[in-house]
Write a protein that binds this DNA or RNA. Structure first.
Length: 433
DNA sequence: TCTGGGGTCCTAGGACCC
DNA sequence: TCTGGGGTCCTAGGACCC
């Protein structure tokens, strides 16, 4: 017998986070912006109701925002990360098998609860999360992850379910599938939606009846799994711990156009430092580094984009080593005469860091370097990212992204606790090299 | 003036080897 | 004229997710 699985999804997560410490925002439209305050990435229910769309550039809706008195926030990932952690810890009270799927979603195995009233249990979870964290959530329960996602969506969009829909062992499944457009099925994006429409498949129920062969041919094995899941056959595994990333990317667009290689070098060094931190956090080493550089594709001006893959002599987790190769890579792809918009670094060829190997091959110097790095990471994680940084990463920080409407980091910085009423204290910076 | 960032998986096709 | 057959590995590109 297939076991029940639940998906818990935070409602309008970033917007909800901004409201938790800001009760004046209750009932008001709230939006959160992408990096550089470029576009809308989260909207409260009220903001959706006044017609603000996901992904819309801020400058295009300035009028609407003023007219409707929309509260606007730059994104504040330290806050969202911490709130996410609180929500997930709460969920762990309700099931031993919680899979954190994204910052605002988790799957929960409900083995052993088959004979209980699952909808009732779901309501209890919702209420507890809201009480303990202030974040409203919705829950879908079914035989498979894909069906649970559909249940969740229906629950969210139909107030009569009060945030919870249980489709496990339920006659309601067919109705829920009929009511779900293929575009809203987990695993079906824009391209596949067009394909399915062209072939007369419009809702999730019709998709569940599609021919296996046809699906595999046009939507690969991944699409076939989706279809089986719609039929109630689990194909997508529950993940125990988070697997180590196979790629680590750090990139940002500039807050202004950049032409000189020296500015780009500084930005790149900063991103490489972040990438190194992420790498060490998951105790891995990387053997390939891709550096990429581009102009702004939305502009009429001359376009250039290019990338280069740099092979490292042996897998490393050392920022210092990576920085040397960054320069080499950047020199290869940089061309004079363009207005640059974005630079980034990607680490791949990622392997687990095996300490014994390091001891075997490495010199004393490298072991010493590893110790310095450890202290470096520790200070930055405790005092805030960027407290210590490498000299190459520059001191001017002009390329650091724009965030003019950021809420204080209520939960992660002592100096920004809600009582303190602190506006935008400058980060303290200490140069290490 | 102003359009994000960070991931995964799958497949086809080329290079190379015997 | 006729231009093998299989394997493996790698990469680029396309699809998806949040």
């Amino acid at each position: 017998m297939t076991k029940p699985i639940a998906i818990v999804d935070c409602n309008n997560f970033y917007a909800s986070c901004e409201r938790v410490f800001n009760p004046k925002m209750q009932g008001r439209p709230v939006v959160v912006l992408s990096n550089n305050d470029g576009m809308i990435i989260a909207r409260s229910a009220e903001a959706k109701a006044v017609g603000i769309k996901m992904g819309e550039p801020l400058f295009k809706i300035k009028d609407l925002i003023e007219r409707k008195k929309v509260a606007v926030f730059s994104s504040n990932y330290a806050l969202y990360g911490d709130m996410s952690h609180r929500v997930m810890s709460t969920l762990e009270q309700f099931s031993p098998d919680v899979e954190i799927y994204s910052i605002d979603e988790a799957f929960m195995k409900l083995d052993g609860f088959e004979r209980y009233d699952l909808a009732e249990y779901g309501k209890e979870i919702c209420e507890t999360v809201e009480q303990w964290t202030g974040i409203p959530v919705s829950i879908g329960i079914a035989e498979t992850k894909t069906l649970a996602k559909i249940a969740n969506r229906v629950a969210k969009n139909n107030s009569k379910f009060r945030g919870v829909l249980n489709l496990y062992n339920s006659d309601e499944r067919k109705n829920a599938l009929l009511a779900t457009d293929v575009a809203d099925v987990w695993g079906v994006g824009r391209q596949y939606t067009k394909l399915l429409y062209r072939n007369g498949i419009r809702n999730a129920y019709e998709l569940s009846l599609a021919k296996d062969k046809w699906i595999q041919k046009h939507m690969t094995i991944t699409g076939l799994k989706t279809v089986h899941e719609l039929r109630g056959i689990p194909c997508i595994e529950h993940e125990e711990g988070p697997p180590a990333n196979k790629a680590i990317i750090v990139s940002r667009s500039f807050s202004h156009l950049v032409t000189s290689i020296s500015e780009i070098r500084e930005a790149l060094a900063f991103y490489a430092t972040r990438a190194g931190e992420k790498l060490r956090k998951q105790k891995s080493a990387a053997s390939l580094m891709t550096i990429f550089l581009r102009t702004n594709p939305f502009k009429q001006s001359p376009q250039y984009h290019n990338g280069v893959v740099v092979k490292l002599p042996m897998p490393t987790d050392s920022t210092i080593e990576m920085l040397a190769y960054c320069d080499k890579g950047l020199k290869q792809i940089f061309r004079k005469g363009y207005n640059y918009h974005k630079v980034g670094i990607m680490l791949t060829g990622i392997v687990p860091l095996d300490k014994s190997q390091i001891a075997l091959f490495d010199t004393e110097d490298r072991i010493k370097m590893a110790k310095i790095t450890e202290v470096f990471d520790k200070i930055n994680s405790e005092m805030g990212a960027g407290t210590l940084f490498f000299g190459t990463a520059g001191t001017k920080k002009e390329w650091i992204t724009k965030a003019e409407m950021k809420s204080p980091r209520y939960t992660t910085r002592w100096d920004e606790l809600p009582e303190a009423k602190a506006d935008d204290l400058d980060e303290q910076q200490t140069e290490l090299f």
